[in-house]
Design a protein around this nucleic acid. Structure first.
Length: 132
RNA sequence: GCUGCAGCCCGGGUAGUCGCGGGGGGCGGCGCGUCCUUCGGGGCGGGCCGACUCUCCGAGGAAAGUCCGGACACCGCAGAGCGGGGUGCUGGAUAACGUCCAGCAGGGGAAACCCUCGGGAAAGUGCCACAGAAAUGACACAGCACACCGGUGGCGGUCCGCCGCCUCCGGCUGCAACGGUGAAAUGGCGCGGUAAGAGCGCACCGGCGUCGUGGUGACACGGCGGCCAGGCAAACCCCACCCGGUGCAAGGCCGAAUAGAGAGGCGCUCGAGGGCUGCUCGUCCGAAGCCUCCGGGUUGGCCGCACGAGACGCUGGGUAACCUGCGUCCUAGAUGGAUGGCUACCCUCGACAGAAUCCGGCUUACAGGGCUGCUGACGUG
RNA sequence: UGCCCGGUGGUGUAAUGGCAGCACGACUGGCUCUGGACCAGUUAGUCGAGGUUCGAGUCCUCGCCGGGCAG
């Protein structure tokens, strides 16, 4: 989900997820998601793809790079816990850089999993674990 | 030792592990071309892809701001004049510069050393608020003087016409020192001089002009003359020099898609219109089309794109910036956009900050550390 | 990435290089039984740092912030 082919790379991919997808959010992140099956039947059910959106309002180029790296790393570590066959767009919100400074990668990872759990997009095995 | 000054350099390190982008190899997969064939297939060449595997490389001194200068690309050629913009002590360096080096002048410091958009205000225009007599034509004003003229009054003399002296007033004349200001007042200070005064004269200082000497030059030193000349050109401007425009989203190639459909204007060969710079000239293209507006389609791939005014070392020239020659090296190339996570140890406990066509500068931000040279109003020997 | 604009009280705006005004707002007081309206007064500003100038919101340089354009 971190390699190039597992990222969203086209404007139209982003537009489709924004327009047709659904969203959940918390204080630090917004998650848009949309199943791949509808439009591109060829790649239906394949590995999920993710696109990151980190706007200039969050800080300098260095700051934005730190945020994107943290989000990519969090995705990589939890790749197997997230349901496949979906396209995601993760938008970083203004307080996220501050959270990264304070809590490090673990805090960002925790918040990322929180939005996936809200959207019920964890893989079935992980779903059971979180219920317990 | 301390202190200050100048210049240069570094910008956490090592190991392990999980990852990311790019190059190359292996292996695997899929097309293509060609040859052979017993029609099952096989050989050779080359291409694309890969989540597997090996290996190499992978942000900065400012990558930043985008303030200058170039390279490069397109505008057919890149022409002239006007306009516009830029630079501004001198000499040099450079591809070029608003950069750099060495000087000069002025200013600061005890010194090492540092700072300065530093041409022209006797080409012209404009501005100089308030205050002040006056803000640039040196005259008016206030004032000073009483040599000259007229008058009032007093005293003295007298040949009774008037004359001399003093005081005051007016005129004429002379004067620009003095003038509660002001950021700035037509040199400063002293002596002489005079009715009062004045560079009117003199000495010193300052400024200007001119001549000589030294220097490539800015300029410096000296002689002579002579007193005529306020500030602002980061006000218009003048002078000298420089600048064609647009910028890699430049531009080129391949592929895909849509509608040569509508409205208006001009014109059909003495020329519409367009390009070249905003305008003019000039020049080029140019024909049954051209321009403007409205509407429609595309947002894929490749190249440009990383071997360059390149880096490092040595040698030679130059005070230096820099340049000549030789040797060695190849050092990011993304495109929703790659350098990160974890563990351990060490130290000075880690600042400012992320390449996007590429170079040379400038400016701005910055934790901490290292090296070299120099200064001596200090302390010690 | 490249190019081009702008910045004056809380808001909207004026100011030939010469005392930074105006309107709305806010606050205080008055009027009223109370509020509004009205009257009187107060508050607060040239984005920041240097430079030119006697004097800078204005001119020059650098920085900061905000906005716009493009193939």
């Amino acid at each position: 989900m971190v390699r190039r082919r597992s990222r969203l790379s086209r404007s139209q991919d982003f537009d489709r997820v924004y327009r047709a997808g659904r969203s959940v959010a918390n204080r630090y992140l917004v998650l848009y998601y949309f199943p791949q099956s509808g439009v591109e039947s060829a790649r239906a059910g394949g590995p999920s793809r993710v696109g990151l959106s980190v706007s200039k309002r969050l800080g300098s180029a260095v700051e934005r790079n730190r945020v994107k790296r943290a989000l990519r790393e969090a995705c990589r570590l939890n790749e197997h816990s997230i349901r496949s066959g979906y396209d995601f767009v993760v938008i970083a919100r203004a307080p996220l850089p501050e959270l990264l400074d304070r809590g490090g990668l673990a805090a960002v990872e925790d918040k990322l999993m929180e939005v996936f759990r809200k959207a019920s997009l964890l893989s079935p095995r992980e779903e059971r674990k979180s219920v317990q």
